[in-house]
Design a protein around this nucleic acid. Sequence first.
RNA 1: GGUCCCGUAGCUCAACUGGAUAGAGCAUCAGCCUUCUAAGCUGAGGGUUACUGGUUCGAGUCCAGUCGGGAUCACCA
Length: 599
Amino acid sequence: MQFETDIFNVAFEAVQKLFNVKVDTERIQLQRTKAEFEGDITLVVFSLTKISKKSPEETGSLLGHYLLNHSEIIQSFNTVKGFLNLVIKDEAWLHQLKKAQQHAHFGFAVSKKPGTVVVEYSSPNTNKPLHLGHIRNNLLGWSVAEILKADGNEVKKVNLVNDRGIHICKSMLAWLKSGNGETPQSTGLKGDHLVGKYYVEFDRMLREEKQLLMEQGLSEDEAEKKSTLMEEAREMLRQWENGDKDIISLWKTMNGWVYEGFDVTYRNLGVDFDKIYYESETYLLGKKIVEEGIKKKVFQKKPDGSVRIDLTEDGLDEKVVLRSDGTAVYITQDIGTARLRFDDYRFSKMIYVVGNEQDYHFKVLKLITKKLGYDWSDAIYHLSYGMIDLPSGKMKSREGTVVDADELLNDLFAESERITKELGKIDDFGSEEAKQLYRSIGLGALKYFLLRVDPEKRMLFNPAESIDFNGDTGPFIQYTFARIQSVLRKARMTEALCEYENRQFSNQHVINKEERELIIHLLQFPYVVHEAAEKLSPALIAHYAFSTARLFNHFYHHHSIADIENSDTSAFRLKLTAFTGKVIRSALQMMGIHAPERM
RNA sequence: GGUCCCGUAGCUCAACUGGAUAGAGCAUCAGCCUUCUAAGCUGAGGGUUACUGGUUCGAGUCCAGUCGGGAUCACCA
């Protein structure tokens, strides 16, 4: 918060002088004053009454007088119960505003922090197309990485493609059995969708087989074990790990289709990576580490051939790290991948953006790396985000209740086109320019919708209502930006005002209520960015961007910015408007949302 | 069953390390475009923060219990 340290220091000194005690720093609590009271910053004095041995009102009043006399920036104060509300001088705000406006990258950290932060996100399986849940993951990961960069961190975005394992074999097997040589070219299907079709097909065939077995009196578990299809899939995985030429070749082909499809979706979403890891390239290292771990007695080889780790003492269970047939499981490769990453980046922190359904997995991963003696184990952090629910419940790919990423994007682009055309504000745009705008508005709606919610919390998406373009939405913020640019454009074409950028205002410039509120809010931006980075929460940026837009619109409707008699006031307001635009653009940028000049 | 997470307005979400009268948007109702973009602005109604107790100057926030929802405890990922 702006002026926090200034006031803190004087308050600290005040307590010492007035009550003759050196206080613990946490006793001095500062916060923004609530809107319904007069003041900008509030000192909560309850915790100081024990020291002052006076009533909260009296304590506040004594401190208030001291602060008023010893701080340059305080205009006045009032006490309500145990709250000491401080009014900061307008000239102090204006002074800060001037400094902020001169800042080339206001809101972004000035100095670099030591160390490298690795952010893993996306991490798709190559057996099915991306859905809404993956979109939340991608946008969260991307945005968290950008926010960390803005806060001065060296950041590497990495993706871990889960390109091997039993699930891929299922798609391959189904394609071999009933694919008739279909390809993306022959079907016109996007590659990831084609492969996904066969993953679903495998599941259908398996259910059929299990049904037959269960009719013979087997339980579901037994049926799964007895299933010849499952056995074939497992056999395929063994052949794959043995490097069987045909299997590898088919695997390469089908994964290739998926990657082409993913690339399109990633491009649409505007996410990118510094490095892509493939499980097929890390699982062997994982297996090697497991072998070493057996010697170190971290893992135990069981009579059935499987390798396990006993985590019961840590409150968890016994965990398999290698199957009895020697093949690797999920955690095996994750151990290898983590180690490889450390060798690559020597990270000071590694953030895994992965859904909360895997909380257990990451507890295990952290524990295993710890037991293996890796000191970077503590640097592992699981950014665990909530699932997206539909009104009907959880999304399930097998039951076809998923919201497909590509479909959703296209729907949003179409909706944005419809609304834009209806409003008719960009009728002079060329078709390509218009198309770009439809995309950026559709994406703005989607990204804001997903990022505004606290990552930890699960959220609800209603396909029937889809995503709004009015109110607390991305397009509202984009619209406010476009409106700002429009005002500035007009002013630049006015002879009396075109020089507004070069005009300097005095700290004694008189400001109104709406301007004051907006200025104070704008000056919070760097603190918000810092907090968002600490909490790894793009939601804080989203809320901030929204309230910035709301405050600006409020100001806009109460005062005329450009066409007024007084050119000093006008120049001041134009500069304030331009600065607001800059802050909004930076905030949107951290969420990957484009700020359009017109819409 | 064990472990963990969640329950805030009709709906979707806020509420800084415990702080003042729990805030926004959507939806509903009533207003505002001869003026810088109405994807906007102004106003109204809407709450026992699931429930019961406790901790204290103060609890949506912390603790215990109850009810309701979810995740996980795979030789799936």
